[in-house]
């Protein structure tokens, strides 16, 4: 059983929901990321989604675009991101880490090379926004062979037939994108999320994480009621942007936001 599956199963047994923060690796500078990851775990994060910076993040809103730009100013490459995971693993062998990003940096270093390095670094899952299951057969097999999960997105526009295909290709959890739009879009509609999560559950026993539009403790708690996990990104990245000149304050400030979400979700 993968670390992600273990984590989500044990939460389920406790009747709790997963808090899954996203930050872009190397934002605002590479030295911040590993400490930030530890601080997020201490504040109650169950799984960490670590963004691979990309020059052309088409599915992201301005907040994460700018995070990518900050990380790229410092030349944060995929191999550097893997190095950060390796360093994180020296102190934390428990918390699952999912790499999230776009396909081209992976293509650039080569699939086999990436799979070997990611597995060695201690990566647990990979979510590539622009790799649909139709194109992902050999990549999914490669991940599986290394004991890593392939995480896929499901959108409000995804048909039932595709939900089946996506869930068959994926493992670990599926990521339900709660709104039509880019990351950091408008607030989510919890009732619509609930009915779509139910729709997904007709076809899979995989846990369902929900992201896009969770911005505070209240919306995190509302999502946790209807899904297996709340994925939160832009609100954290916004805080990082605010504090980019005082980067030593970033871990505590991000932890504070997560802690409030954690306590609201556990109530």
């Amino acid at each position: 059983m993968s670390r992600i599956q273990q984590c989500l199963q044990s939460l389920k047994q406790q009747g709790r929901k997963a808090l899954i923060p996203y930050v872009t690796a190397g934002d605002p500078e590479p030295g911040v990321t590993v400490g930030l990851m530890h601080a997020m775990v201490e504040a109650g994060a169950d799984i960490i989604e670590l963004g691979i910076p990309f020059s052309d993040p088409m599915a992201d809103g301005p907040v994460i675009q700018l995070a990518c730009e900050r990380a790229l100013v410092h030349g944060t490459r995929l191999v550097d991101v893997l190095e950060m995971v390796k360093t994180f693993r020296q102190q934390d062998n428990q918390t699952p880490v999912v790499l999230m990003g776009y396909l081209n940096p992976i293509e650039a270093i080569g699939y086999d090379n990436f799979l070997a390095q990611a597995s060695e670094a201690g990566v647990d899952g990979v979510l590539t926004v622009d790799l649909p299951p139709e194109e992902a057969d050999s990549f999914c097999e490669g991940l599986k062979a290394k004991g890593m999960d392939a995480i896929f997105l499901i959108a409000p526009t995804t048909t039932d037939e595709r939900i089946k295909r996506i869930c068959a290709a994926g493992s670990g959890y599926v990521y339900y994108v709660s709104v039509k739009g880019v990351t950091g879009s408008s607030a989510l509609d919890v009732d619509a999320v609930a009915s779509n999560v139910d729709r997904i559950r007709q076809y899979t026993s995989l846990p369902v994480g929900v992201g896009f539009g969770i911005r505070d403790a209240e919306s995190a708690a509302a999502v946790a009621k209807v899904a297996d996990g709340a994925i939160v990104g832009s609100v954290l990245v916004n805080k990082i942007a605010e504090l980019q000149q005082q980067s030593d304050q970033i871990p505590a400030a991000v932890a504070e936001i997560l802690a409030s979400m954690r306590s609201a979700m556990d109530q």
């Binding site: 622009d130 139709e134 194109e135 959108a155 409000p156 526009t157 048909t159 994108v177 039509k180 739009g181």
Partner: peptide
Amino acid sequence: ALGHFGPYGGRFASETLVSALE
């Protein structure tokens, strides 16, 4: 049928757009 010209082309799009593309 999936838009491939040899190894090129394809449909590497965000999931939200896939049903519109289909």
